[in-house]
């Protein structure tokens, strides 16, 4: 188990290294002068020179890369061109709203989706199954910002139950914090409910065809016990995996949702940085998001080695 854990943790390094290479090369391999691209059309040649110097473009590619990686390992993501602040401090300022939104969304999604998917699988072919599956295709198809605006229009503009947009830090009151998160999280959770419900249904269905389910029935177990003790426990591995995959979708969703609901998180920071051609900030954010994705998938691998003894030994 320990060996497996160490191996799995070490496997993060090459992946992150490749992410770093891709992020690094994206700017360097774009045709044209990177400094000119960053500076934009209205820049003077003095601006471009300044940027070139800041990026260290005179050095060799390898040197630049090593320097950049070294700084990042020390927690230094460079300085923003646009805000003239360190990227690290900006990220730490804006990370909390994003974290709150993402966590709240995942919790809502799991609580709703897993029972729905299990029920749909158990009642395969029934109206319940068809409804859940139909809603899940719909959930995949309606983009999060359309859902967001529909929710705002109905519940904020017309019914006036919720504020239209905005965010309240947890320090200013827990009630208000949750209250203002309800609409954005609901909008964002739709696609996850669709994804997780569907995956739960598929894996439970698959498990229900297994021989050991027949064994459990042959023992005289009631259907409820067959489902909870034997089916769900085995279906948990693929369900947990899909939650890992969902993290990638979640990050995309966060960017859009923050933009729709004007939440001052990393998503809005990303958009501002892109539009401001603030390359150090963009690089830092991509590295951070990718790291989170890799890290969560690492945690998930560990969780499922706990769920499945075949991986553990």
């Amino acid at each position: 188990m320990l060996v497996y854990l160490i191996k799995r943790i070490l496997a993060v390094i090459p992946v992150m290294l490749i992410v770093a290479v891709i992020v690094f090369l994206m700017l360097r391999l774009t045709p044209g002068d990177p400094a000119a691209i960053i500076a934009g059309d209205a820049a003077t040649s003095a601006d471009i020179d300044l940027i070139r110097e800041k990026l260290g473009l005179e050095r060799s590619l390898i040197e630049q890369f090593v320097l950049w990686i070294g700084n990042m390992l020390g927690g230094d993501f460079g300085e923003s061109f646009y805000y003239k602040r360190s990227v690290t401090s900006m990220i730490s300022d804006r990370i909390w709203p994003t974290l709150a939104l993402a966590t709240f969304t995942i919790v809502i999604a799991c609580v709703v989706a897993v029972p729905l998917g299990t029920l749909a699988a158990y009642k395969q072919g029934s109206w319940l199954d068809r409804t859940v599956m139909g809603m899940s295709v719909l959930g995949f198809s309606v983009p999060v910002f359309v859902i967001g605006y529909v929710l705002i229009y109905v519940f904020a503009v017309k019914l006036d139950w919720f504020p239209v947009q905005g965010y309240q830090p947890i320090a200013d009151g827990f009630g208000g914090f949750i209250y203002r998160l309800i609409l954005p999280s609901s909008a964002l959770s739709v696609i996850f409910i669709a994804l997780i419900a569907r995956m739960t249904r598929t894996s439970v269905l698959e498990v229900l065809n297994e021989d050991y389910i027949r064994t459990a029935r042959a023992k005289g177990l009631s259907e409820t016990k067959v489902m909870t003790r034997h089916a769900l426990r085995n279906a948990a591995v693929p369900i947990v995996t899909v939650i890992g995959i969902a993290i990638a979708v979640l990050i995309s969703g966060v960017v859009v949702t923050e933009s729709v609901f004007v939440i001052p998180g990393l998503g809005t920071l990303t958009i501002d940085a892109i539009q401001g051609r603030d390359y150090p900030t963009v690089q830092g954010l991509i590295m951070l998001f990718s790291f989170v994705y890799v890290l969560i998938n690492l945690v998930i691998d560990v969780i499922y080695s706990l769920l499945d003894p075949r991986i553990r030994y």
Partner: peptide
Amino acid sequence: MRFMDGLMAIPAILLAISLVALS
């Protein structure tokens, strides 16, 4: 496959946004 793992670790939307912004 290592390269693909790396590519998959970058959220699709960020990768796409950066590529458009650059080109």
